[in-house]
Design a protein around this nucleic acid. Structure first.
Lengths: 162, 162
DNA sequence: TTCACTGCAAACGCTTTGCATATGG
DNA sequence: CCATATGCAAAGCGTTTGCAGTGAA
């Protein structure tokens, strides 16, 4: 298993990311509005997963007013251009994640504290191959989420029991 | 990879399932109401995944009136007793699945026709072990979903292209 | 100029909640 | 008898939609 370590990630510059988005907008005949680029910059600067409300509040704090509707619309564009991935970990808990580094990865979520561990597990590719061979199923993407108790919470549990 | 073939599944009798549920209700001091057993029977007889609305309608057709609230409450009990698993494939698309055969399994969903393939992939247990060893993460359960194009839809796609 | 985009608020749809009534233990 | 469970309807909440106004091309 490969730890997703920030130090080892290839960091793409904002200009590169912006260029990818511009190319997508051109190709699909969408307008290059200032809102779209401001939102892109905002999520570029933000670390980790986010949801719409979080993004809305951060932008308000930064004195940039966008409507929630625009945020939802823009996320759609980001997803279609491959810059953002959406996770529906639970109902009423849609999380977005920027996808600026190329490595796809999976998640382990602590059911107690909602902490998210990210990891990359190449063995999943073997499963993809099996699906192709056994069922003729062509995988586009996948979602692998483990639910359980993280290290910190299990230490706390033991402490409480004592 | 192991195909989840109905023919090879151990079919638990309703009485066995009911017994598991009764034991859970006893252990957790919940009442044995007629509604709970009627709902259990209904999902026992039903094949495949279901959502609350589907279950509500089926029961109405069968002349057994329960409120949606009771269905939601009862699903909670079924999940806690391990008889039902909840999948949040999308927002506004919570699917429940009975878990009467002991083998856990994963899903591949066709993004075109929404067909669901079920399979069992033991290699996931290795990933669980890695999570435990690398992060001290204790997995309770997991969700692995592949999104892609199924055999039938890719055959159709080729036919259309010709 | 024009039509896609934005902001706002209302609508939506699934789920949860509050409360009066019913009933298992 | 009374704490739990149920049914019903209202409320909640993230998301989508409709529409009037705005601005990119």
């Amino acid at each position: 298993m490969v730890l997703k370590n920030e130090k080892h990630q290839k960091i793409e510059s904002f200009e590169n990311i912006k260029q990818i988005f511009i190319e997508y907008l051109n190709k699909t005949n969408h307008r290059k509005t200032p809102e779209r680029f401001t939102i892109l910059k905002e999520i570029y600067d933000f670390q980790g997963h986010f949801d719409i409300e979080m993004l809305y509040n951060r932008m308000k704090i930064n004195r940039y007013r966008v409507s929630r509707a625009t945020l939802y619309n823009t996320m759609e564009l980001f997803m279609e251009s491959g810059l953002v991935i959406k996770h529906q970990f639970d109902k009423n808990c849609a999380q977005y994640e920027k996808n600026f580094c190329s490595k796809l990865h999976d998640h382990a979520i602590c059911v107690k504290c909602r902490r998210v561990i990210e990891f990359h597990e190449p063995v999943i590719n073997k499963v993809e191959e099996s699906l192709k061979n056994s069922y003729g199923f062509n995988t586009l993407n996948h979602s692998l989420v483990f639910y359980g108790i993280c290290e910190y919470c299990s230490i706390n549990e033991k402490a409480i029991k004592k």
